[in-house]
Amino acid sequence: MASIKLAAQSSLPVAPDSYIYSVTATTPRTDLKFDTYQPISSSDKVAAISSDDSLLLLDPSTLKVLPNGHIRGANSSLTCVKPYAPVGEQANIILTAGRDGIVKAWDLRTCRTAFTLSAPSSSRNPSAGPDAISAIDCNAETNAIAAGTELEGDGPGDVRIYIWDHRNPQQPRIAYQESHTDTITELRYLPYPSTASTILMSGSTDGLVNVFNTTIEDEDDAVLQVSNHYSAIHHTGLIGDNIYALGTDEKLSFYVQQNPDLDQPDPEPYSLGDLRDQAPCDYAMRIWNGTRPFIALGSHNLDEQGLGFFPLSPEASSATSSPRWNLNTTSGFILPGGHGEEVIRDYFIAGEMKSVYTCGEDGSVKLWVQ
């Protein structure tokens, strides 16, 4: 295992005992299919969101807060952050969303909102205000922004996926409201038919991973694929050309994408099971779908604190067999020490592991470099 050294650690002006939920950066993405980004440049910004509802814009090398880079109350009960830019372009817009039911687009040149999108009021209780937003994704190639909502109370219940054209922010272009029955935890645009993608994947704590053709308004016709992971979805996305589902119980499974011939049955999924039984870790994070995919596994016990990026390798298989990806725990990269005893909530990689940003429940952002 190769170690990546700690290069910088933030000291953020957030409320005591705040968590840093998510971290991202403005560096250009090179491909919609793969999680590959150009190396960080001095003109880039690192963005992080905190449990005290702050959006923080940081210098990418020192992690110091930039001038006007502490946006307090970005949303009420902030949950999500995503850069908004076409593939190959540096992001000038950062999206945030929260349980206030609002998506805000922050213009990084002015640190002011460029536009806002509001989820409609809950059909159960219209007087309660907009649906709380728990997940977002976007594709600037098609001006599309998608938001998934959180279930209030015990499931099953009503949750929705809203899709806006940001040029017409008054109301969503599409609302899907029957395909999930619990909180949406992941939305991902897939690279089909091109970077001008109209295919959206969703994951939920109801255990389902769905794939939609968002050019179709009728929900029954829009659903291209449904996969049942049988445990709450923590993250879902692509690994190579396959779909992965990672549960909150740390179980990982793989699925083929829907065969265009609907009469052709898809093979059963391949499950790796509980990753804690296969690697020295306490929790699993999402897969980084590069040309060489990794999964991030974290440990916060006193003996083995750190974050490891372990490669996943495919087995040769026929067109009719399940996708089989196997975990290699003897190679990869380790971030020794991680965030100490605290859980690492998110990471962002630029330049093929040249720069790795992490954030966690210790209230800090860290930069690691090879």
Rank of each mutant, 00 (worst) to 15 (best):
E250M: 04
L66D: 01
W164V: 05
S51N: 08
G237T: 04
D282K: 15
A147R: 03
N326M: 11
P193K: 05
S331I: 14
Q225A: 10
S50D: 01
G98Y: 01
F254V: 08
D35C: 14
C359A: 14
R109F: 09
E341I: 07
W368S: 06
W288A: 12
Y230L: 12
Q170E: 15
I71K: 02
G129W: 00
E217T: 15
P130R: 12
E141L: 07
N92P: 00
D59C: 13
H339R: 05
V256D: 14
N68H: 09
D137S: 10
V46D: 12
S54R: 00
E341W: 06
R160L: 09
Y189G: 03
H339L: 09
E89M: 12
A175N: 14
G363R: 10
E178L: 15
D158H: 07
A128D: 06
S318I: 04
T329E: 12
P314M: 11
P156E: 03
G88H: 00
D44H: 03
W164R: 06
A196E: 11
Y347S: 11
G203K: 05
P311Q: 12
Y189V: 07
G247R: 00
D52P: 07
D346W: 05
N326D: 11
K5S: 15
L238R: 10
W288P: 00
G155Q: 03
G237D: 04
T142I: 09
V14D: 07
D206Y: 02
T195M: 00
P267E: 10
L95E: 03
P314A: 11
N92F: 04
V356Q: 05
I71A: 03
Q90D: 07
D206R: 08
L246E: 07
I287D: 01
I133C: 06
C80K: 11
D17M: 08
D241F: 08
F115Y: 12
A279Y: 08
T358I: 13
F254N: 02
S61L: 15
V223R: 07
L262Q: 01
N143A: 12
S76I: 13
R286A: 01
P13E: 02
E186Q: 10
S22L: 14
H339G: 04
T215K: 13
E342N: 13
P311R: 14
D182S: 12
I49Q: 07
A135T: 03
A2I: 12
E217A: 15
E342L: 11
H180A: 02
G306D: 06
G148V: 01
N328A: 04
S41W: 02
L335Q: 13
D100N: 09
V23L: 07
R167N: 10
A74Y: 05
Y162C: 08
T198Q: 05
A8E: 06
V226T: 11
I344P: 02
